[in-house]
Design a protein around this nucleic acid. Structure first.
Lengths: 337, 337
DNA sequence: GACTGGCACTCCGTCTGTCCGAGTGCCAAA
DNA sequence: TTTGGCACTCGGACAGACGGAGTGCCAGTC
């Protein structure tokens, strides 16, 4: 691939992102010193269009990048800019002072939305990467109880439970058994030990024990129930005028936890920032948007994924830098707190 | 106030709501049989405009209702239509099968959004109207613990806590004391009894006891921390074309829990459906919108408030009916569950 | 006195045609 | 391989014309 052609593509992306208007050959040589004439640039543009990296909205208009063009841009051209010290400080102050896990994630999603000026999505830390800290059973009525699971990441899961004929005494025993089997273990380890526990329970506990263990296993296994927080919705107005058509499907997707979870799940393959551009996206509602996501968590152990959703026409270098930075700081913050 | 003039106003509101276009005298007599000629209607319209109930976007256009006009409409003209049996059944099926409180509220907000085709807001039940069911203290590290509060509405509140020098033994004692003082009481009663408990604690518990009680009191007193759930955002696209101007501020307001809480708080004065139209709204970002809200909860005891936000140009009678119906069913559902 | 038909007037939205500029593709020359 | 020149295309902005919906007012009728 010709070197200058890449440079032209980079310039087109840069200009289009900042002006949001198709960019022509003359404007291009005016704003970037490419050292050649508009006519030459035109030839390169024709070639780039031939190869599918840019396109014309209509004859005799400037060019805009295609999804494929953006892809090439982020793969080979994007020099990820590091954040300024001021921005880094802002991140830290924004996060410090959080009380509990909910608060941390709320602050994170707002921070991310503010820094990137896009819609931010943060997934709750998954159970599988954290350990069980405590299991609690609380009697609600004579036939119902509440099972509560607390993890090392500070997350609390609850589930209602049908529990026939129980008193405080047996409940306390059950609690002790459950805790003994699970505390300190990861969700998979805990699940294994609970399976064994079923057979080892004293007869007095067998009925309510089985009910409790079944519910607990379900909670441990339900990674799918991981929740997500969304913020920065007002930034959707940046999409521009194409409203009824473009924004409505995005709003709909953002309300579906399931969609968001799959989106984030598929994005976090390796350990670094991932970008999904336009049609690369698994959901058709989101094929006018791009996703920039990153796993976060302490050390090598990834807890979950966070990211942003915005128009394909976005400033990838700085967005990627911001997402990466926020992911790092939040991960550090979580493993300390 | 002339009887026919009211009828004209009612017709104008009805037509404008359904067509979203200024309505003129001729169209009015065509669609509603008012028994008079357009010219007569014109006279009435001139009077209504004089009194501030309707207005013209420009000379020689039809009329549209003002906020004052809508107000008169809902106060004196709106015959609240009851829901069809099919709709009532839909509500019940939609709610049944909910697991925990989070799930109930999630379903409620979706239901409300779907039925009204507007943005729905549901406030979490406030502590002050529910009773304490259980208090749990869990040791996290040697110096930190987690305080968990469970209420009769199934709500769980957590708070991290600095607890110097504690072992399982003293923690169990503390737990017993806290539960003895609070379980079964409303938040105000519980707070009072906790105040007394401070002085009655055995010396061995005095240090960690005071820390625990202080935190618990804070949790009980923090009605302000009540959360809200928002849903049906895609319905914002119904606002029409005036996007950058009208929708952005609304989106911003909807992300601010504080704003929403005050909004709902001020709306729920008496026990029935309340309507706030346009400028009657306390927040200028929402002055192009109307709020239809209703308290919900079991019997006379109001738990919290729910409602919808939409353009002032909305179908008030059916919206009010829907909000009222959902509020009733959810209240019943909560007090049974 | 209230209602009605008629009439002149106003103004918006739409349509049409024109014009300008930005941008392109191609070609011949450097 | 690059460049300047040229003809061509198309969209957006502008201006004027036109039709329609709606109004206000007035004089006549019940």
């Amino acid at each position: 691939m010709d070197d200058r052609k890449l440079q032209v593509l980079r310039a087109i992306v840069a200009d289009y992102v900042s002006t949001q208007e198709p960019v022509g050959s003359k404007a291009l040589v005016d704003r970037h010193d490419l050292g050649v004439s508009p006519a030459t640039v035109r030839n390169d543009m024709a070639a780039l269009e031939e190869e599918g990296y840019i396109t014309q909205p209509h004859t005799s208009a400037g060019r805009i990048p295609t999804d494929k063009g953006y892809r090439l841009f982020v793969d080979r051209l994007g020099s990820v800019k590091p954040l300024s010290p001021a921005e880094q400080r802002a991140i830290v102050t924004f996060l410090s002072g959080a009380i509990d896990l909910d608060d941390i994630l709320l602050r994170t999603v707002r921070l991310l939305a503010q820094v990137t000026q896009q819609v931010a999505i943060v997934q709750y830390p998954t159970l599988s990467h954290s350990t069980v800290r405590h299991v609690e059973v609380v009697s609600l009525t004579t036939s119902r109880a509440l099972l509560i699971l607390i993890t090392s990441t500070g997350r609390i899961e609850q589930r209602a439970l049908e529990l026939p004929e129980h008193d405080e005494q047996t409940l306390a025993e059950l609690r002790a058994h459950l805790n003994a089997a699970t505390v300190g273990n990861s969700s998979t380890q805990a699940a294994a030990r609970l399976q064994k526990l079923v057979d080892e329970l004293p007869p007095s506990l067998s009925v309510i024990g089985q009910a409790g263990i079944a519910a607990l296993l379900e909670m441990l296994g339900s990674e799918s129930s991981t929740r997500v927080v969304v913020g920065g919705m007002p930034n959707l107005t940046r999409f521009g005028q194409e409203f009824e058509t473009a924004v409505r499907p995005v709003l709909e997707a953002l309300e579906e936890q399931v969609v968001l979870l799959r989106l984030l799940g598929e994005a976090s393959t390796d350990g670094d920032v991932t970008v999904r551009i336009g049609q690369e996206n698994p959901f058709k509602e989101l094929q006018t948007t791009s996703l920039v996501a990153s796993p976060y968590g302490s050390q090598a152990d990834a807890f979950a994924t966070l990211g942003i959703v915005g128009p394909t026409r976005m400033d990838y270098p700085s967005t990627m830098a911001s997402v990466r930075a926020v992911a790092r700081y939040v991960g550090r913050f979580l493993s300390e707190g």
